[in-house]
């Protein structure tokens, strides 16, 4: 174990440089965020992930964001355990009917100002589960959505680019 620590100290981190913020994401966010909330947030966002019926594929890639290669916390992006601590709800899945109320309640429990990110094909349009008797459909039918990150599942670099565009926007003081 001490050899590992020594190597890490001498060789430097394994973390890779950040991708550039997604242009699509920036465009989508333009005009959505009030100047007042920008000032309040500064350059950090606390994210609460909510699985509203995902196959777990998106969660696997969200986990990858926390590994030392992507190291999402260096950008001020942090996954938090409670919606009470969150600025952003990151929602995955086609919103099953059995999860819709829990999602709504999680949104209600998140203090303003707050943003919602629909993560992955299912959250954006229901994906392969669209039209099922057990699914409500896109996240935006349940709560308002500010940013969409497509992919099935989105690669960690795509997730990072999308979240960085949210961060850039919230930090730019118009």
């Amino acid at each position: 174990m001490f050899n590992h620590i020594l190597r890490a100290l001498t060789k430097g981190p394994v973390t890779e440089p950040a991708p550039s913020p997604s242009a699509d994401g920036l465009a989508e966010l333009a005009g959505r965020i009030e100047a007042a909330s920008r000032a309040r947030l500064g350059r950090s966002l606390s994210i609460r992930a909510v699985d509203a019926g995902s196959c777990n594929g998106c969660e696997l890639e969200l986990h990858a964001l926390n590994n030392p290669i992507y190291d999402v916390e260096r950008f001020g992006l942090r996954f938090v355990a409670s919606p009470r601590h969150a600025d952003v709800l990151l929602v995955t899945g086609p919103v099953t009917k059995n999860m819709a109320e829990a999602l709504r309640r999680t949104w209600d429990a998140t203090p303003d100002p707050k943003w919602v990110v629909a993560c992955g094909a299912c959250a954006i349009d229901g994906g392969v589960f669209a039209g099922s008797y057990a699914c409500v459909g896109p996240v935006e039918t349940v709560i308002p959505v500010d940013l969409r990150i497509p992919g099935c599942p989105p690669r960690p670099a795509e997730l990072l680019a999308g979240l960085l565009s949210l961060l850039e926007h919230s930090a730019s003081r118009g």
């Binding site: 019926g53 777990n56 969660e59 099953t96 589960f129």
Partner: peptide
């Protein structure tokens, strides 16, 4: 997270059903 997978697959061509099965558990 019940998505009605079995009902969604019913009556579908095998190729379409395979896409649904691939998303049963990521």
């Amino acid at each position: 997270v019940h998505k009605g997978v079995e009902a969604l697959m019913r009556g579908q061509p095998v190729e379409r059903a395979a896409k649904i099965i691939a998303r049963l558990s990521g």
